[in-house]
Amino acid sequence: MNDKPKIILGLIVFVAVFTFPFWYNHLSASAPPKVELTEKAKAAKVCVAEKEFMRREHMQILDQWRDTVVREGKTIYTDENGKEYVASLSNTCMDCHSNKAEFCDKCHTYTSTDPYCWDCHRYPEEKK
């Protein structure tokens, strides 16, 4: 019994499936997104935490804010330097970062992240 043709066909399927990322992208990648700050954000200089921390952990702060505001009724967040902020995505974060498409969506789309923030929250109309 000679099954070699069938086995070779199987191997071709194997290689095609397991090299998917190599051929799907046609060997070219678009440049990674760069976060764009609004004038207001640039002027403010500081966020609720330092930049590298915010890059990695902003979602956890928002999750924490949701819990403290909704479940414990504490609406004030105090940062490491003792500065106080109203814990609110729409009113505090998006006051400076009003450019949702440029500031939030770019990286979220790039990394296939679909946060359900805006299932409930409104975001400010973008000013062009």
């Binding site: 990648a29 990674p32 890059r55 990695r56 990394t111």
Partner: peptide
């Protein structure tokens, strides 16, 4: 926590055969 955007920059470099270590 790790920086996901930088990781994707690196992994995309790998699969497009333009490897590099992202800054930061």
């Amino acid at each position: 926590k790790v920086d996901v955007v930088r990781i994707k920059e690196m992994t995309m470099g790998l699969v497009t055969l333009h490897p590099g270590i992202p800054e930061g």
